[in-house]
Design a protein around this nucleic acid. Structure first.
Length: 285
DNA sequence: AATACCAACAGTCATTCTCT
DNA sequence: AGAGAATGACTGTTGGTATT
């Protein structure tokens, strides 16, 4: 038995993908992306403009997405990685293309990262971090060799727009060690939201845009009988995107809305059910 | 699909230190 | 001496990816 009636579910879905997703983007996503890229403006427009630059795009990948695992408590490693990048560029963003052109970006970045970690008395966690950092740098290098720009973000963006598919690019980025299903989907989800690409993407690929974390796992069975407490992650992703579609709401925005509850509005997992119950009853703002 | 891994984190409990 | 604070060793949990 699902916790909520179909009618309540439709209200919950529309509120999550509506105002909650909005707030997630404006209060969380754009400001955080802006901060890791180190730009001043935080509107979607300004974030998009920054990401069009290869250097800023790389900062976003390295500082925001690459270490987005394990909740938010891994903030340290991303800060170290950004510091390592600054160091290899000697503080000048103009050096970024030179770095990619050098062909040794992976090694340089990794070495700098090790140094920064040591200075801060943190273990490098080589097994988890090395191929992540190197892999990302390799990816950028490869793109640079093809177009002499090397922008990870826009390259992915264009691949999606051209094909209307998300699967091939998902496979590509999750091949980078350290980027698994969760982070891969997270990145694609935000990108699709930022450029409003969802309607033009093949619905068969929607589950790739549904990162599954503790909160999504918990909320799934409350919304549909097709899920229970130990459904596998990709099943959760699939069923939830289907549920969103049937209710004519954006799956991508639904997922962002849930993340908003997780990190700002509810915070405590135990309170999720009560919160949703209230949400289903109160009238939309 | 199940299992192994990993470092950080959070508790627990015992020991040592410090102050009155 | 004794209460309480600080330190430290040990243990289990967490949330992700890798491996099979």
């Amino acid at each position: 038995m699902a916790t909520f009636t179909p009618y309540e579910v439709s209200i919950i879905l529309s509120r999550l993908s509506g105002e909650k997703a909005d707030r997630f983007q404006k209060e969380v996503l754009y400001p955080q992306l802006a901060r890791t890229m180190r730009i001043s403006g935080t509107s979607s427009q300004e974030v998009r403009e920054a990401l069009a630059d290869a250097y800023y795009a790389f900062r976003a990948m390295l500082g925001y997405y690459a270490f987005a695992k394990r909740g938010n408590d891994r903030a340290e490693y991303s800060a170290f990685a950004l510091q390592a990048l600054d160091r290899t560029l000697k503080g000048k963003k103009e050096n970024f293309s030179t770095l990619l052109a050098s062909g040794s970006a992976p090694q340089q970045l990794w070495e700098a990262f090790v140094q920064v970690c040591q200075e801060n008395q943190r273990k490098v966690n080589e097994q988890l971090n090395r191929e992540l950092i190197e892999g990302l740098a390799e990816f950028a290098t490869r793109i640079y060799q093809e177009d002499e720009i090397g922008n990870i973000w826009t390259t992915i963006h264009q691949a999606i727009v051209r094909s209307g598919r998300v699967e091939p690019i998902y496979q590509q980025i999750t091949e980078i060690r350290g980027i698994g299903p969760k982070v891969g989907s997270l990145l694609l989800r935000d990108m699709v939201a930022l450029y409003e690409l969802e309607p033009s993407i093949d619905a068969a690929d929607y589950h790739y845009l549904q990162p599954v974390d503790t909160w999504i796992r918990r909320i799934g069975p409350m919304l549909t009988d097709e899920l229970n407490n130990d459904s596998a992650d990709w099943i959760i992703a699939g069923k939830l995107s289907k549920l969103c579609r049937r209710n004519r709401v954006s799956g991508v925005r639904f997922n962002q809305g849930v993340q908003y509850l997780a990190i700002v509005e509810v915070r405590k997992l135990e309170q999720l059910k009560d919160y949703l119950r209230q949400l289903a009853q109160s009238t939309p703002a």
